[in-house]
């Protein structure tokens, strides 16, 4: 017991997480922990539950079973407002119907620090500018958010999350819809955040090579094949123990987790994605090339 406490002391720790949407089991018995200050990538095919996992960790969705600890506190016991001070979330490409200025968008990140009837004050504006400067985008603080490029918009959303002054940052496919230059720029910025501000980063990625290049650890997920099975929970109530055992899915989501070079092997990638890949090494860097 004591050992366990030390283990989940700092960082994020996920224990026995299970979730099903309607009758589809999406996450089954997910366990992992993330050390404070590290950059962790979540990888896996479409529909394997990456986004769902992020949504559970930041409290958007409730799991059926299991617990998420952040700095050894159960997130279900943390109020929304408190959680927003610890954890920032950058969702997949965001669109706005109103042409708010970039500064106004970033200011909304100050929400957890602003009392009910108040508006952002001088301090909040100062904070927002600090974040914008750190991200190198202070020069378009007054530009309408709807008129900047996709890459710039992603930087703004990260800036907004940083304005929350979080210790943890969750990013859902931060590189989607970006061109090559912007992808690298955004990922480098994220790494920089973790290194200079000791922010723990958990992000989902589609490109395995980016996981190799930009993360300290990789969590490789698979899609649960028998997704339409009724979930474990219901069976454990209804059916006899033996039957429940048979019907319980043996599969778990996590194929492997750990340092990228250990996780990103051809065998494990095949297990997760079902395709054959080759791993090449070049100047000490690894590269994954699919076999066509």
């Amino acid at each position: 017991m004591k050992e366990k406490n030390i283990q989940k002391n700092k960082g994020i720790s996920v224990e026995n997480l299970t979730l099903s949407y309607e009758k589809n089991l999406v996450l089954n018995n997910v366990n992992f922990s993330i050390k404070k200050g590290s950059v962790v990538s979540l990888l896996g095919p479409n529909g394997c539950g990456k986004t769902t996992l992020l949504k559970i960790i930041n409290g958007f969705l409730r799991q059926n079973e299991g617990t998420v600890y952040i700095d050894s506190r159960n997130i279900e016991e943390i109020a929304n407002r408190e959680l927003a001070k610890i954890l920032g979330h950058v969702s997949q490409m965001h669109k706005s119907s109103f042409p708010f200025s970039v500064l106004d968008v970033v200011l909304t990140g100050r929400m957890p620090y602003i009392s009910i009837f108040a508006s952002p004050g001088k301090k909040d504006i100062e904070k927002a500018y600090q974040v914008l400067e750190f991200m190198g985008i202070a020069h378009f603080a007054q530009r309408p958010y709807t008129q900047i490029s996709g890459g710039e918009r992603q930087m703004v959303m990260i800036a907004k999350a940083l304005a929350q002054e979080p210790d943890f940052l969750l990013l859902d496919e931060p590189t989607s819809f970006l061109d090559l230059k912007n992808q690298i720029h955004v990922l480098k910025t994220i790494i920089n955040l973790a290194r200079t501000r000791n922010i723990t980063v958990l992000m989902t990625l589609h490109e395995p090579n980016y996981a190799l290049l930009f993360s300290d650890e990789v969590i490789l997920l698979r899609k649960l094949e028998n997704g339409n099975f009724t979930n474990r929970h219901e069976y454990s109530h209804g059916a006899s123990p033996e039957k429940a055992k048979i019907l319980t899915l043996p599969e778990e989501n996590i194929v492997s987790s750990g340092p990228p070079e250990k996780v990103m092997t051809p065998e494990k990638i095949k297990e997760a994605y079902g395709i054959d890949v080759e791993v090449l090494e070049h100047k000490g860097k690894r590269m994954i090339i699919p076999e066509i």
Partner: peptide, 23 residues
């Protein structure tokens, strides 16, 4: 009038508003 700034937060989208801790 008193809550006017909160409309900015809400106008950016519900998920975004939740992410910054809004009920």
């Amino acid at each position: 009038y008193l809550l006017r700034w909160k409309l900015n937060v809400l106008a950016l989208g519900e998920e975004e508003a939740k992410a910054v801790g809004m009920n």
